[in-house]
Amino acid sequence: MINDDELRKKFEQIIEQHKGILYKVARTYCQNDDDRQDLVQEIMIQIWKSLHTYNNSFALSTWLFRISLNVAISFYRKNEHRKKNTIPLPEELEIMYVEESNEKQEMLSLLDMFISELNHIDKALILLYLEEKSYAEIAEIMAISITNVGTKLGRIKEKLKSKFLKLHL
């Protein structure tokens, strides 16, 4: 039986090594910094609460993506009650992007905007695709067939491409 201290160490290790997943999910699902911070914290709380149920039958990243995406999709705006129970994260974390050329920055903003226009499920699929997850891993995270991953992703990619095309990009 794992004790509290060991669990805490394990939690800190997981967050330290995989915090990128949390922020990428938050970036995909939230448009403003306050919501992003709230969402990251919600995900961390859920990881902490679920940690004792983790078993090695899944890759850690699969488990983390499942929790992060489930929290993000269920996440429904912040409210005063929850706000009182949140801990402010370091301010520097709000800076998600460092300086970049105007053109690249514009393209990034457009990509974020187009992804934000997708529905909740499509957002999860495109995020996993862009994170270079294999179709088998995506299928495992989402609970859909591998064939279906291919079909759905094909449609989403077309949608994104046509949005860029409309802007002659």
Binding site: K49, R66, N70, S74, I121, I141, M142, A143
Partner: peptide
Amino acid sequence: FSEPVLTMQ
């Protein structure tokens, strides 16, 4: 929350 996304949602 660690269930597959569509199942849990």
